[in-house]
Design a protein around this nucleic acid. Sequence first.
RNA 1: CGGGGCGUGGCGCAGUCCGGUUAGCGCGCUUGACUGGGGGUCAAGAGGUCGCAGGUUCGAAUCCUGUCGCCCCGACCA
Length: 578
Amino acid sequence: MRSMRWSQYFIPTSKEVPADAAVPSHQLMVRAGLIRQVVAGAYSYLPPGYRSLRKIEAIVREEMNRAGAIELHMPAMHPIEWWEETGRVAAMGEVLVRLGGGTGDDWRSRTVLGPTHEEVITEHARAYLKSYKQLPINFYQIQTKFRGEARPKSGVLRTREFLMKDAYSFHMTKEGPGGLDEGYQKMYDAYCAIFSRCGLPYVIVEADSGPIGGDASHEFMVPTDAGEDWLVQAEDGKYAANLERAEVAPLPDLGGGRNAAIAEVHTPGLRTIDEVSTFLKCKPSDMIKTIIYEADGAALVALVRGDHEVNEGKLRRAAGVKSLQQADAELIRKTTGAEVGFAGPAGLTARIIADQAVTVMHDAVTGANKTDYHVTGVNPGRDFKIAESGDVRVAVQGDRARNGSPLAFKKCIEVGHVFKLGTKYSDSMKATCLDAEGKPRAFIMGCYGIGVNRIMAAAIESLHDEKGIVWPTSIAPFEVAVIALDLRDEQVNALATKLHNELEAAGVDVILDDRDARPGFKFNDADLVGFPVRIVVGKKGLAEGLVELQIRKTGESRKVAPETVVGGVGELLRDVAL
RNA sequence: CGGGGCGUGGCGCAGUCCGGUUAGCGCGCUUGACUGGGGGUCAAGAGGUCGCAGGUUCGAAUCCUGUCGCCCCGACCA
């Protein structure tokens, strides 16, 4: 075993904060010498960064294997034909990276770089899985993905090229032994084990499974300001969801209002909630926002309070429609009889779904369905009928969960996603196998993703301090740094080397800082790179026959006899582990 | 894709408005001396097609036109 000496290794630390890095994980990963950007959205992992990445991979692999998943490896290059089969060439648009550049009919033009691997794995299932006796089965890989993200950002948190652990399970049934539900639960449990072992403070939320998705989906989120998603959590800890999904308790009817008579007001050119509420000197929450959608080809009217936003996912589910998009100007004119900006619920013949919060409003202001006019004194039930109502808005600060517990909002980053796909891909790719009756049936599938690079960045985001990275031991580039303070001192040098060698022999992942630099420089570097345990061998300590042992996370430090170091470190690593 | 900002040695920046010697400064790097428990000191060095391409001019990092790249906000995101 070759000893690991800093002077002969490569950890290009830097005192300077990179100008292009806005979030802590990005700044620290660059400063600690873990990564270097190559182009927007693609990074090299330098030696210490790659060590960490490999450790994360190893944990993922172990837990996936333990859960019964089988590892394989698929290429990044896919034939576009398979993507055409599932209709995702159009669905993914620019996100799908194509080689292109040829005549349009050559191999380059027919090759894409995989952003995910449902198509490839489903083709393989179609080719090989012919009997229900081969099921259930779960294939996974850790592989590079390519996505033409419009805007890569936040260092390694959002990139165009990244490492993903993706798993795909195949089942004959949804329920029962060997069914999708069971396979899904196994992955769910494996994910908990993976993120726990990686030391991440994660939260599991219900996610919106999207317009064509299956019926269940959970996301594994790590709270951090650098995140792009919103996590909504009940204070009692009993409910957590993605903002896209978060359900809210009905608002109470506070009464109030004078049951004023409905009155038309001239509001020339005033279309937005802001414009109208300012002009009429009312609050946005006194207004009813009337939004016209085109749902499965017909007009659908959604009503929300002026200070609320429609949640299109909730609306789609409430309406029971497949497609939902904001109506164009022509459909709006046809539906309301007015220009865009003056819609109101009264007198409309189209289907109307009101948010619950609208049902408890009094003397509201809304559009008159007449260009340049609004109406005041509108009372739901009296002035327009509410045939359908429900929770169709985006949760906001101040809302409560259905059980009444107040909701808190936190930014977070998604590190994992488990998804019940159903037969979406097996249907479109005609992937079937024979059931016990000898009848061909489409595979019922699940898919399960983990962003490997994101685990590293999310850990740094959520655990760093002002001095640098604070690694969870399990994914630190090195577990222990032995720092020799004065190399010209033979005793110091000899003892530091001895401790390093003994630790290494004991199976500890250790690096010896043997650089000829001043103590402060080496301490600061150690804090920046974030080794969980630091052992300092110096003349002063040695005079008392002691070395210093310090824990990065707590800063706690103790002086110990050199003979006790190996045993002591072993214990510490177990303690610090999570 | 809309809005904003920035491209000058490995890193962080000044110089650009108002064109004019060999393009500066700090960090880092090399060599030497000193120093040695929280990012040392001194001395001597190496390192730059000023993103790229055209143009204006006696003369361009600086002015004009175009173009590419990177970052931030927004839109988008299986």
